[in-house]
Amino acid sequence: MIEIQNLSKIYEKAHQKVVAIEHIDLKVERGDIYGIVGLSGAGKSSLVRCINRIEDPTTGTVIVDGVDLTSLSGKALRSERQKIGMIFQNFNLLSSKTVFENIAFPLRLKGLDKEQIQKRVLDLLEKVELTEKADVYPVNLSGGQKQRVGIARALANEPSVLLCDESTSALDPKTTKQILGLLKRINKEFGVTLVVITHEMDVVKAICNKVAILESGRIIAEGDTIDVFTRKTSDATKHFIGESVSSDSNHRGNNRLQLTFKGVSAEQPILSGLIRNLAVDVNILSGSIETIQDYPLGKLIVELPGDSNVLIEALDYLSAKGVDAEVLS
């Protein structure tokens, strides 16, 4: 759906080169909700703006739905842009136009006739549950309502791709949840491919099936969200994925393990099986369970008092049950 090859963006300011993104390769499949996370300044915004060519990449190509956007200009580029919706952190609605006219705006640009516009906008208003706000100006809307108008406007042209640039960063947690639910619905019901730019890992956990972590203009980790979260963390990815359990406790015991349960293994009584079958003692030091994409992910730090044989046996048992075990000490 979206193929990014060797993309770089270098700004030149006062004879100084600032590298925003460097040699990025990325592939987004049709129907994905692809998260791109990174701290501010990591190059997320530049990357997403290169996808619809609001910014021109310095090198590299961007292919959306089979069309190489980097080779286009003028009218051809504008007509491709109409197939890519975009929503923004600050909504960017026109304060001079009503909710109805804001949503109708992209359709008027295209020169559609009145009846078509009327029908389409009313339909979109219903989808984002704002029918009663049609004649209201944006200044009177709450943040969540504004973003829903933004989403309706972005969907007006029935795009195949929706770019979400920090689309929930200006919203409170409850509204964020609603907007994320709406985005997920849009992905499921209309088959729109989503690219979600965010600095909040929770957004990725909630809706993205794929994720790329961006740091200093480079991708440092990418893949299925669940895999990226369960993979052993490097120092670089650590502050995004975080360690949901504290591993640096003062406990000085031997045979400390970090166990990662995902999917089916998270729902089975593995530990009690371990205790019963191998007749070992297990101390639970800390643990947590979180849900990523409706998929349970458990992390547990345990200690197995005893010698190294106990440890080896336990590791065998655990891997047979499909649990990732990492020896901490």
């Binding site: 619809n52 609001i54 007509s79 923004f88 992209p106 640009l109 042209n157």
Partner: peptide
Amino acid sequence: IDDGVIEAAIAMGATPLQ
């Protein structure tokens, strides 16, 4: 005018005149 509003219009495929 907020740059973002103009950026949104560009993203929607508006011509400079529009």
